[in-house]
């Protein structure tokens, strides 16, 4: 699995319960982790701010909410800002959009995942975590069929397993892992 150079980016999506899981993963990641990580999480309407600060307290790697047209660089965590959709562009920049909610969400994980599938094709690792709806499942499927690598959080380890199960209904991922194993998988990429 010495495929660290394979990935141009890692993209993580999650909803209900995923803040804890993402915090946990980021807190255990190698501080020199070279690959950019893009995180797209649904947020409660009333908790629009404070998420980036919260993650930065836990994370070993700097977490930012990017601006539109920002260049994606390594050793950085990009958190999708609230109330914008996040898309990855072919020139490895981020595009933010205020277009309509999708799957009742903005950011919509499907938008972020599908754009990553198109921009990076086989050079992206998609990870879908715990969540109470189906957003993200279709985007993960697109990553899978463009030969990207996919990890679905083990439904047994989820607060709410609707999101991982929706993905598992659409395709067979490369890995089904608990949060600890996801962190292990990521850290061996940077060795």
């Amino acid at each position: 699995m010495n495929d660290n150079i394979r990935y141009k980016a890692i993209i993580i999506g999650g909803s209900a319960g995923s803040f804890t899981v993402v915090s946990k993963i980021l807190s255990k990641m190698n501080p020199d982790f070279p690959i950019p990580v893009i995180v797209c999480m649904h947020r409660l309407k009333h908790v629009r701010s404070g998420l980036v600060e919260g993650l930065n307290l836990k994370s070993n790697i700097k977490v930012i909410e990017p601006n539109d047209k920002e260049k994606i660089v390594g050793n950085r965590i990009y958190l999708a800002p609230s109330n914008y959709h996040l898309f990855i562009e072919f020139d490895n920049t981020i595009h933010l959009s205020t277009e309509e909610t999708f799957n009742h969400s903005r950011p919509a994980i499907d938008h972020a995942f599908s754009s990553a599938a198109y921009a990076y094709r086989d050079k992206v690792l998609g990870i879908i975590l715990t969540g109470a709806n189906r957003d993200g499942a279709n985007g993960m499927k697109e990553i899978h069929f463009k030969n990207g690598t996919t990890i679905v959080q083990d439904p047994e380890s989820c607060d709410i397993d609707t999101m991982p199960k929706a993905a598992l209904n659409l395709f067979e991922p490369d890995y089904i892992l608990t949060p600890d194993k996801i962190t292990e998988y990521l850290n061996q990429l940077s060795v």
Binding site: K69, P81, L96, T98
Partner: peptide, 8 residues
């Protein structure tokens, strides 16, 4: 501008 727009 919008909250996540910068100047180029």
């Amino acid at each position: 501008l919008g909250n996540h727009e910068g100047l180029n």
